[in-house]
Amino acid sequence: MSNPARAESIAQLERLVAALLAKGVVSEAELAAQQASTDRASPETGARMVARAWLDPEWRAMMLKNGTAAAEAMGVSMAGAPPLGVLEDTAKRHHVIVCTLCSCYPRAVLGYPPHWYKSFSYRSRVVREPRAVMAEWGSPVADDVELRVVDSTADYRWMVLPLRPAGTEGWTEDQLAALVTRDVLVGVALPKLPA
């Protein structure tokens, strides 16, 4: 899936788009709007949501109760998108997200999935040996922490609300958001302070 698109795949896509346009299922304008919205989405949105949750208990409660509403409040259009769920880490629980069946990913708040997320090795290994995968990513999980592997198999999309790292007292939302990378939002890494 990291290979460049083949000519026959492109031709097939063009025939599909032509058929959908001819049948009136979608319009050129709708396709362009969806493309623009997909291109605009980025992990900065998810990072901003997390930073706000670390600072504002009311926002945190709302985001955990209804991730879709929280994304909408960030200016993301969730109409037609799958509902978003936010999984709360604690001192004794960490979440990591995978889609073993395909590549379901919270694109509305994280943008395009990275290639590794769609790879057979990540998808097959993280459910079997999540601790080994976390250790290889440089974020080993302590023995007394429950690791929850969330297999995104159906209609929800998930992101992680990680623990706020110690040593960030008094930090601004911008400073905190900078700690929350795409990998942190998927749960394969934990937020780390700059060395």
């Binding site: 979440h95 459910v127 999540p130 601790r131 429950e146 929850r148 592997v149 297999d151």
Partner: peptide, 18 residues
């Protein structure tokens, strides 16, 4: 999780699936 993957899994881990 270790109940599903006994060879590689470890307590107290969990799988959460739709």
């Amino acid at each position: 999780q270790p109940g599903i993957f006994p060879a590689d899994g470890k307590q107290p881990d969990k799988l959460l699936v739709e």
